[in-house]
Design a protein around this nucleic acid. Structure first.
Lengths: 173, 173
DNA sequence: TTCCTATATTTGCATATAGCAAGTATATAC
DNA sequence: GTATATACTTGCTATATGCAAATATAGGAA
C-alpha cells in the first residue's frame, strides 16, 4: 500500500450505495409530499420556492446563481411559477434592469404544506431507528457532508427532478 | 412530550440537511466524473448504462421498469444512447415484439472510466474523515438507508439530472 | 384459418428543463 | 453623448418525460 491517503475500493462502493440509498429515500419523501398536493409543481419548481422562502426575494440573476442555471432558465422557470400564482415579478425602480422575484402567499402556503408532510414522513423514518442510534446517525451524516461539502453550490443543479412531463394528476405509479 | 413515537422537529430539519448535503456532494462527484469525459452523456443516460452494466441486457419494458419511467421514455432514451454508440438494440427472434438492449464495448468503457474517476474522488473525500470515524459513518448511512429503504424502486426516477440541455463541451461552470 | 384480444414497442404531441446566442432595455464610464 | 457593461428576455435546439394512439406480433377462440 504505497498511498498514504485512504484508497478503499469495496468500501467506497458501499459508501456510495449507502448515501445513494439514503438520498433516494429522501427524494422519494420529498416527491410524495409534493404529489399529495392538488397544486401541480415539479421538484425543480419546488426548489425555486424553497430558495425564495429561505433567502427572501431575489433578482433573476441571483436566483439563477443559487439554482446553478443560466439566467434564461431562471426567467422561464419564473414564467411557469408566475402562471401558477406562486411568485410575483416586480421591476426595481432604482435600477429598472433588475427584476425581483418574490413568493406569493400561495407559494408560502405550498412550502408549509410540503414541509409539514415531509416532517411527518421523516418522523416516520426516524421512529424506525432506535433512539440510541439517532444521534450517532445524524452526526455521521454531518461528518460525511462536511468532508464532502467542499462542493460549490453551483455544482448541484441538482438531482431533484422526479417528473418533467405534464401534470400527473393520475398518480398512476 | 405526549407522543410515544419520535416526533423531532429541528432535528428532522438537521437530518434532512445532512442527508441532502451528503447526497448533493455525491451527485456532484458523479457529475464531475461524467464531465471529465470527452463522451457527452447526461446523468440520466449514465444511469441507463449503469443498470445495463449491473443487470445485463434488458428488454425495453424491463428497462423502463428499472428506471421508473414509461416505456416510451425508455425507447427514446435508447434512441439517444444508440446515436452515441453506447448501446445496441436487437429484436428478439423468438418473440419479435421484444427488443433487447445491450451495452456496446464503448458503453462498458465509459462506465469503467466514470467508476474509476468516482472512486478517486470518493477516496479524496474519505481521506478527510478520520480513519476511526469511517466505519461508524458508513454504518450510520446504512442504518438510515435501511430505515427509509421501504421505498419502491419506481419512486426514484430519481434525482439525477444535472444537465438536460445540449452538450456542455465548455464545462464553463 | 380467421378474428379478437393482449402485449411490446414506437411515434405524435405537449410540457418542463436547460444552454447558447441574439435582442432589448437600462445604467455607467469616458 | 456615445460606447460599453449589465440584467433580463426571447428564439432556437436538445434532453427528459407522460399520455394517447399507432404498429407489429403473439396467442387464443370461433
Amino acid at each position: 500500500m504505497p498511498n498514504n491517503s485512504y484508497s478503499g475500493s469495496a468500501e467506497d462502493d458501499e459508501l456510495i450505495d449507502a448515501v445513494l440509498a439514503a438520498s433516494r429515500a429522501l427524494v422519494a419523501v420529498a416527491a410524495r409530499s409534493l404529489n399529495e398536493l392538488e397544486e401541480d409543481v415539479t421538484l425543480v419548481q419546488y426548489r425555486v420556492l424553497v430558495e425564495l422562502a429561505a433567502r427572501g426575494p431575489q433578482f433573476v440573476a441571483d436566483l439563477a446563481d443559487i439554482l446553478g442555471v443560466i439566467p434564461s432558465t431562471a426567467t422561464r422557470m419564473c414564467d411557469r411559477l408566475l402562471t401558477k400564482g406562486l411568485i410575483t415579478r416586480k421591476r426595481s425602480t432604482s435600477d429598472r434592469r433588475l427584476v425581483k422575484v418574490s413568493l406569493t402567499q400561495s407559494g408560502r402556503n405550498l412550502i408549509s404544506q410540503v414541509t409539514q408532510k415531509r416532517r411527518e414522513e421523516l418522523s416516520e423514518i426516524l421512529s424506525r431507528i432506535s433512539p440510541l442510534e439517532r444521534e450517532p446517525v445524524l452526526n455521521a451524516l454531518r461528518t460525511f457532508a462536511d468532508a464532502a461539502g467542499t462542493v460549490p453550490e453551483q455544482e448541484w443543479s441538482l438531482g431533484w427532478r422526479l417528473s418533467a412531463g405534464p401534470r400527473e394528476e393520475s398518480k398512476s405509479q
